[in-house]
């Protein structure tokens, strides 16, 4: 303990101090949203900022519930869960095939997937909206889910994990007479479980926060997500800061909680995704 303290140099202390100041600054928006959501109108509009609500009130939340805020929350959960489930299933199958099978057209397909990943996905939103209207999915939550599942990031991530499965193991069960489906469910899936966990949490969070795609695809109040709901409050009732803060808190708290619970998997997901280079 003593030696550790002695080893600290001025620069290390400087770094630690700066880090803590930055940490406060970066945590501030979330702190301000949560405390702000409990402030009354006078406190929230005060010129001298009230750092902690002196007269906490639930009034903002009560008024927020009158907007269909639970509906917004439900929609966001529905879209994120569906995208997550479908992405994990399709990516697990495709990642395994790309990693462990040798097939005609493999190289071409792989190149195509890489090129698609390097392109800005927001650019295709105009034609994507036209396509969704053509499919009769305009203003439908599936118009957000389907393109999210199509994005090839998950395939890369799970290909990475599938490469770690020993080929001998796959051959052994095949010799024992296991079919393709059985091999996949009894060997592959358990082996790539951490990868699926990482992809699930990553997809859930990024879908929840994909404001742009939701904005383009969803209009009517019954399909709005919590992100769209907050933006709507901001646009329509821009002076009611308390209500907006309550909306922002309702949108942020669940996703931050999920992130903190699963952050180990999440970190693993982005790190492994980058390794493919």
């Amino acid at each position: 303990m003593n030696g550790k303290l002695k080893a600290k140099k001025p620069y290390d202390i400087f770094v630690l101090v700066v880090m803590f100041i930055l940490a406060v600054l970066f945590a501030f928006p979330l702190y301000w949203i949560i405390t702000g959501s409990f402030k009354d109108a006078a406190a929230i509009n005060a010129v001298q900022p009230e750092w902690f609500p002196h007269n906490p009130t639930m009034d903002n939340y009560v008024r927020l519930m009158a907007k269909p805020a639970f509906r917004w929350l439900f929609n966001a959960v529905f879209i994120s869960v569906m995208s997550m489930a479908l992405t994990c299933i399709t990516a697990a199958m495709a990642g395994y095939a790309l990693a462990k099978k040798r097939f005609v057209g493999q190289k071409t397909l792989f190149t195509l997937l890489i090129c698609a990943m390097a392109l800005p996905k927001q650019v295709v939103l105009v034609p994507l909206l036209k396509e969704m209207s053509f499919l009769g999915l305009h203003d439908n939550m599936w118009a957000v889910i389907l393109p999210t599942v199509g994005w090839p990031f998950g395939i890369f991530l799970l290909k990475q994990f599938s490469e770690g499965i020993p080929t001998e193991m796959l051959e052994a069960v095949r010799i024992d007479g296991a079919g393709e489906v059985q091999t996949f469910t009894t060997i592959v899936l358990p082996m790539i479980k951490p990868g699926i966990g990482a992809l699930a949490i990553f997809t859930f969070i990024s879908t929840w926060n994909d404001y742009f795609l939701q904005l383009i695809m969803l209009n009517s109040s019954k399909v709005l997500t919590i992100s769209l709901g907050i933006a709507k409050l901001q646009a329509e009732m821009s002076n009611d800061f308390g209500l907006i803060m309550a909306g922002a808190a309702l949108g942020a708290i669940p996703i931050v909680a999920i992130f903190l619970m699963f952050q180990k998997y999440f970190t693993q997901g982005i790190t492994m995704g980058a390794v493919k280079g």
Binding site: P29, W208, A231, A249, G251, A252, I255
Partner: peptide, 15 residues
């Protein structure tokens, strides 16, 4: 440092 990303553009922009 990841918090602003998770909180989301919409909620962060309110602040």
């Amino acid at each position: 440092f990841y918090l602003p990303v998770v909180t989301g553009s919409v909620a962060v922009s309110v602040v």
